[in-house]
């Protein structure tokens, strides 16, 4: 298993910091990609930040009310070693599903 630290991203408009309003996940929890993980407030707006990836939450940084600078650690995930690395996710090997059935009269000439 490997740990991946996700820093507070640039939330746009040149803002350099954000205040934690409420964490929506906690350490030990498994999260999916795009699942909302934290409510943040900037001097422009309040927003929910989606998870950049799937994984188990190892640590969260900042209690409600704390201010975090862009680029500082926000959350740390634990992920299997065989994840795609910098981009993408490992596809699941799922059982094939179908809705279409074939029907044909085959002339065997």
């Amino acid at each position: 298993m490997a740990e991946i630290s996700f820093p507070l991203p640039d939330l746009g408009e040149g803002l350099i910091e954000a205040t934690v309003l409420d964490w929506l996940v906690e350490a030990g929890q498994q999260v999916e990609r795009n699942q909302p993980i934290v409510e943040l407030e900037t001097s422009k707006s309040a927003l929910e930040l989606p998870s950049p990836q799937a994984g188990k939450v190892v640590r969260i940084h900042g209690a409600p009310g704390d201010t975090i600078n862009v680029g500082e650690p926000l959350i740390v995930f634990e992920v299997p070693d065989d994840t795609a690395g910098i981009v993408g996710t490992v596809p699941k090997d799922e059982a094939p599903k179908r809705r279409v059935r074939l029907s044909a009269v085959l002339d065997e000439d």
Binding site: G88, R98, V100, L102, A104
Partner: peptide, 22 residues
């Protein structure tokens, strides 16, 4: 990525192609 399952030929689209030929 959210839309690629619709883009990449899936099982049903391939089965439809087979049916058209049959």
């Amino acid at each position: 990525g959210d839309l690629e399952d619709e883009y990449i030929p899936n099982i049903d689209r391939i089965l439809f192609g087979i049916q058209r030929v049959l």
